[in-house]
């Protein structure tokens, strides 16, 4: 350091520093500490769940716990396969029903609807997100499921040749749970899809229109290809929500611990089993460990799905800065 620069450092009497600056490092330490706390918390979280779930994994093996079709509380047998299947079936139904509707609504709001209607429609779509899970459950079991029953019976009898349809129809079942989940993920999927579609450059859309494309062709050629990654991400985030949704599903799925024969059978999900059996498990260590292990499987599943979702959404966002390559996707 040259002599001239000395005056610019701390040696200079009190000119460059205000009296209160002693507190500055402290603020930095405290805020950094809080940020580190988040990491510590999640690490601790994972370790504690794992330690508490160990007895179940030790007894049934990791593979056995996840893939054995055998959840029988009375015989202390815990294989989570029926729960995993229930989680996958219900969230699969939710995706198949919810995502196309959510994307259609997002397209309509961003590209087709009169500007005056845009705001009110957006608010209405987001209102669905303000309804709590337990209220969806209440509505699902006392209004939706009974009203749907005749239609389900008719469908089950008419197209019983299809796989996983036909046979007895119970009031709480996989399909009703999936339908409720579809309604619950609709606002989030639609909101993210709308955000992604809003990033499509006006130039791309105007170019399509100027070439004589109809509105629908413009959507197909300019909007959808550009926002494909983001929309996939939105769908994955919706899937993550559907997998972890607990109370609504617990109320409408029937809580039967076996793999149902059709989509109209009663079932169980990973989240529902935890909510439903926790009371009785408190005094039975292996049962409790099994439920915590189910929670761990659920946790890992949502981590995985959300990581994929984030990768998609990030890819969609990064594309923003790059000139899109050709429109005919």
């Amino acid at each position: 350091m040259a002599a001239g620069s000395i005056s610019a450092t701390g040696d200079r009497p009190n000119l460059g520093r205000s009296p209160g600056s002693r507190l500055d490092p402290w603020m930095q330490y405290v805020l950094t500490g809080l940020a580190a706390l988040i990491l510590a918390l999640i690490g601790f979280f994972f370790v504690r769940l794992f330690v508490e779930a160990r007895p179940a994994f030790d007894r049934f093996g990791y593979f056995g716990f996840v893939f054995d079709n055998n959840w029988d509380v009375s015989r202390s047998q815990y294989g989570a396969w029926p729960l995993l299947v229930g989680t996958l079936i219900t969230s699969g139904i939710a995706l198949v029903i919810g995502v196309p509707i959510a994307i259609a609504a997002a397209l309509y709001v961003t590209e087709l609807c009169p500007v005056r209607l845009r705001q009110p429609l957006t608010i209405l779509l987001e209102l669905l997100a303000a309804v709590p899970s337990v209220v969806y459950g209440l509505w699902g079991i006392f209004v939706l499921a009974p009203k749907l029953l005749p239609a389900e019976k008719w469908f089950s009898d008419t197209v019983s040749f299809l796989p996983f349809v036909g046979g007895t129809v119970s009031i709480p079942n996989y399909f009703v749970a999936g339908l409720i989940l579809a309604i619950m993920i609709l606002p989030i999927v639609s909101a993210i899809a709308r955000e992604v579609m809003a990033t499509v450059p006006v130039e791309n859309k105007e170019a399509a229109l100027a070439l004589g494309a109809t509105r629908w062709e413009m959507i197909r050629l300019a909007v959808l290809p550009y926002s494909r990654a983001g929309i996939s991400g939105a769908a994955m985030l919706g899937l993550g929500r559907a997998i972890g949704e607990t109370i609504a599903v617990t109320i409408v799925i029937g809580n039967a611990p076996n793999v149902g024969k059709s989509v109209f059978s009663q079932g169980y999900t990973l989240a529902a089993v935890i909510a439903n059996e926790f009371g009785e498990a408190a005094s039975d260590p292996i049962h409790r460990a099994a439920l915590i292990a189910a929670g761990l499987v659920l946790f890992v599943l949502t981590l995985f799905v959300n990581a994929i979702a984030r990768a998609f959404v990030n890819r969609g966002v990064r594309r923003e800065r790059i000139v899109p390559q050709g429109m005919a996707g």
Binding site: I38, I42, G244, A271, G295, F299, T302, N306
Partner: peptide, 21 residues
């Protein structure tokens, strides 16, 4: 990244965690 991870954790799993701890 971990704040994002927390957003995705199902609420029932948070309940389990607090129950254990």
């Amino acid at each position: 990244y971990f704040v994002d991870v927390m957003t995705g954790v199902p609420s029932v799993v948070f309940g389990l965690f607090v129950y254990i701890v």
